[in-house]
Design a protein around this nucleic acid. Structure first.
Length: 814
RNA sequence: GCCGGGGUGGCGGAAUGGCAGACGCAGCGGACUUAAAAUCCGCCGGAUUAAAAUCCGUGUGGGUUCGAAUCCCACCCCCGGCACCA
């Protein structure tokens, strides 16, 4: 009596057996090539939704495929467990962040297990546990010792809702990346990591198989521009400074400078401002301070500014140029001051018009005869009104002028970057404490290695006041200086959670290792990651930071590679009702209920089938039933006895073999190239074909059984539970997941007959079947003689014949 | 504004210079059933048509080619990213 496909019964059964047998236990096996397949680990938000499945299930399919191909595959899973939501939940519900987080870990681990992935849970990593964050702190100390971590007073991004500072990368459209609250500027003493040290290297993606999009985003984020720093003279007896610098990419326009603009926060503004202007300037600076980043950088807003009464000397022509301040000039970029060349910059042009500042043309537009400009001319041209540089093309002028300035001591070649150092201190509780002590005698000292971890006290009051909760924990804050033994204070800020995720992929290679963050030998065996999959939203956050970490570790001699992730793949997003899934919209698809009705295998396959993985797709309840029907069809195909017909012929068998081998070839290519949707449709087509063969019984039992076996092997990565069950029913040796991936025979896959499309004047008029080795002349002859074609060429002159072997014949007639 | 990606039946999508719409969903018709569900079979871009067949059809307009969804130019729309970076 054939059984029914009942995933609710077989899936838990096999998951338990695989776990009991440690089927997916991974160790360093030097006899096999290694494959490190990494999926971005989830944040411990509480519930796994279908979006998580969309990230995890297809990557598991690919990892399983690699296993069957003979690779020693590491495909680990863990939890990004520090972070604000834990603290917010604590404030809201009165649960301790640790308890909230670990409860979520429990639940999510349970849910992750239902996916049926090859995760080796012995390698699980949880970033909020002391045996992990000890090493996060250790890395901080190493970075500090290498001169890559420093503390500095600076204007920083502040989210007034989260009560915390944000790194530049975490400000999205002028708002907080978590809650969208517009960020404001605050002057605070903060810890930074010197990511700018690697600016040039981070722009390069040499040898990396990454999406163009991400590479471009990272390049733009670094924002390298070449130009010059130009000095201006301060000729004032009441001021010590003799000069001030501006950065420009257009040194060829220095003769066109008619004013300069400083950022309102520029340190010289107060000194330079004249008495008469003091009040006006002060008001403008105040207003700038209060503005959110969004208001300040909005391109919609008309630029405004204030003349501060002072003048600087433009060395190239000795002119005195007025000094303005305007909030569109940012202290954080370049030198915090720009030269104003209205004739050749759109912003300067608008600014000069508004305030009646003269416009002087120094790069002649084509056919220019000295008339006033209607708009700024920003392209290249010939230099005019520029002393002895007149007549020089502006492109050359950029170099010549800079060289001239350098000789005179009035400037130099310079490179400027948009990238800022990574701000990593956070004024919150739920993070790894920064392992630093402040001693009145010895200054700022890193905690010695043997004293790590600096444990996060469990009894801190975590009110979101904008100050570090640890500040008020006497027991935590008071310590002894290990150098001079006098009382000292601990640093009370915690680290950005992106610190934790910048090295977790190294920890997976040797979890539990006690003598360092990772076992150097095992790390060397597995790293770098061969395939990293996850969302594109981490382009200039996690992915960027991880590359920085790797390069810093390389320079410390801890790793010997330059890049952590060789191939990167970004999956798309699953949407519901044309919207992104989210709790607040109430459109979250809960995998748990799907599992009881259809099973994990159906959900896995549906997610891969719905659209190309990189594109993402819409969740559709009736769409998934198509996959459910298909898996049931396979189940029934195998559970109902196959009966060969009485008279078998060899041609039918040849066709059968050809179908099988073509399927293996197509499926292998598709799964290898991460084209899961077409891989599954190929398997569906083959299933439909097998259904017809079964009806006719046209091949011997032996061949049928062999084809079924290969079908199961090809389906095993996608539907691991069902195939394991059927594999066992057919009496094959446990487990289907330790079998070899089937191979195809090119000879058996080859077509014996080809179908040639026959066109007349480019229009399809018929098809002819011919042997594979047909000659050109024979093919053309057959085409002209075909019944369907004759009417179209009769009475006309054939002027050309195009023949593409195996594909098409095109008869051009007049 | 700039930089990516995209626009194909009722829907998700396939085909990246050679048969447009594979595969699946939905729909329609039929078989089985007392009936329904499930399953199986057939049809399923539009127009003309009894049918055969023909014509039209891949965002819009042009071009290259024997031949274009695919390549080139211009434009429109959608999605993602960046956006006073001097």
């Amino acid at each position: 009596m054939p059984s029914n496909y009942n995933p609710a019964e077989i899936e838990p059964k096999w998951q338990k057996k695989w776990a009991d047998d440690r089927l997916y236990h991974v160790f360093e096996d030097s006899t096999k090539p290694k494959w490190y397949a990494l999926t971005m680990f989830p944040y411990t938000s509480g519930d796994l939704h279908i979006g998580h499945w969309y990230a995890m299930a297809p990557s598991d399919v690919h990892a399983r495929f690699k296993r069957m191909q003979g690779y020693n595959v590491l495909h680990p899973m863990g939890f990004d467990a520090f972070g604000l939501p834990a603290e917010n939940a604590a404030l809201k519900h009165g649960i301790h962040p640790h308890e909230w987080t670990m409860r979520n870990v429990e639940n999510m681990r349970r849910q992750l297990k239902t996916i049926g992935a090859v995760y080796d849970w012995d390698r699980e990593v949880i970033t909020c546990l002391p045996d992990y964050y000890k090493w996060t702190q250790w890395f901080f100390v190493k970075l500090f010792q290498a001169g890559l971590a420093y503390r500095s007073q600076a204007p920083v991004n502040w989210c007034s809702n989260c009560n915390v500072v944000l790194a530049n990368e975490q400000v999205v459209n002028g708002g907080c990346w978590r809650c969208d609250t517009p960020v404001i500027r605050r002057d605070l003493k903060q810890w930074f990591l010197k990511i700018t040290h690697y600016a040039d290297e981070l722009m390069e993606h040499e040898g990396l198989d990454w999406p163009e999009k991400i590479k471009t985003m990272q390049k733009n984020w670094v924002g390298r521009s070449e130009g010059a720093e130009i000095h201006f003279g301060i000729e004032r007896s009441d001021i010590d400074e003799k000069g001030v610098k501006a950065f420009t990419t257009r040194p060829d326009t220095v003769f066109g400078i008619t004013y300069v603009v400083m950022a309102p926060e520029h340190p010289l503004v107060e000194k330079l401002t004249t008495k008469e202007k003091a009040e006006e300037v002060k008001a403008y600076v105040e207003r700038t301070r209060k503005r959110t980043e969004i208001e300040r950088v909005s391109t919609e807003k008309e630029k405004d500014g204030v003349f501060i009464g002072a003048y600087l000397t433009n060395h190239v022509n000795g002119e005195k140029v007025p000094v303005w301040i305007a909030d569109y000039v940012l202290l954080s970029y370049g030198t915090g001051m720009v030269m104003g060349v209205p004739a050749h910059d759109d912003r300067d042009f608008a600014f000069a018009r508004k305030y009646g500042i003269p416009v002087r043309v120094v790069i002649a537009p084509p056919d220019w005869e000295g008339e006033d400009l209607e708009e700024a001319f920003t392209q290249d041209g010939v230099m005019v009104n520029s002393g002895h540089f007149n007549g020089l093309p502006s492109e050359k002028g950029r170099k010549e002028v800079t060289r001239y300035l350098e000789n005179k001591g009035w400037g130099r070649f310079a490179v400027s970057y948009k990238l800022r150092d990574w701000l990593i201190s956070r004024q919150r509780y739920w993070g790894a404490p920064i392992p630093i002590i402040h001693c009145d005698n010895c200054g700022t000292l890193p905690v010695p290695e043997h004293e790590l971890p600096v444990l996060l006290p469990s009894d801190a009051e975590f009110k979101a006041t904008g100050e570090s909760p640890l500040k008020y924990n006497e027991e935590f804050i008071n310590t002894t200086c290990h150098k001079c033994k006098s009382p000292a204070k601990r640093e009370t800020d915690t680290m950005d959670t992106f610190m934790c995720s910048s090295w977790y992929f190294l920890r997976y290679t040797s979890p539990g290792f006690d003598d360092g963050p990772f076992d150097p030998d095992r790390m060397k065996y597995w790293m770098p990651v061969d395939l990293y999959t996850g969302g594109a939203e981490h382009a200039v956050m996690h992915l960027f930071y991880s590359r920085f970490f790797t390069k810093a570790l390389r320079d410390m001699g801890l790793v010997d590679f330059d890049e952590p992730f060789l191939k990167l793949f970004n999956q798309g997003t699953i949407i519901v009702d044309r919207q992104k899934m989210s709790k607040s919209r109430g459109n979250v698809i809960n995998p748990d209920t799907l599992l009881s009705s259809m099973g994990a295998d159906v959900v896995r396959a549906y997610l891969m089938f719905v659209a190309p993985w990189e594109q993402g797709g819409e969740w559709n309840d009736s769409g998934i039933s198509g996959i459910n029907r298909w898996l049931n069809r396979i189940w029934n195909l195998i559970n109902n006895q196959y009966k060969p017909a009485e008279n078998l012929n060899n041609d039918a068998l040849k066709t059968f073999e050809r179908q099988l081998h073509q399927t293996i070839s197509k499926v292998t290519h598709d799964i290898n190239d991460i084209r899961f949707n077409t891989m599954l449709s190929t398997l569906m087509e083959f299933t439909n074909y097998l259904g017809r063969v079964k009806e006719s019984g046209s091949v011997p039992f032996q061949n049928w059984q062999e084809a079924i076996k290969k079908l199961l092997l090809m389906l095993a990565p996608s539907a691991p539970h069902m195939t394991e069950e059927l594999w066992q029913q057919l009496g094959y040796e446990y487990s289907v997941h330790t079998q070899k991936w089937p191979e195809w025979d090119e000879n058996k896959a080859k077509e014996e007959e080809i179908t040639l499309v026959v066109q007349v004047n480019g229009k399809l008029r018929g098809k002819i079947n011919l042997p594979v080795n047909v000659s050109k002349d024979e093919a053309l002859k057959s085409a002209m003689e075909a019944e369907r074609i004759k009417p179209f060429i009769e009475g006309k002159k054939v002027v050309d014949m195009i023949y593409v072997p195996g594909r098409v014949i095109n008869l051009v007639v007049k």
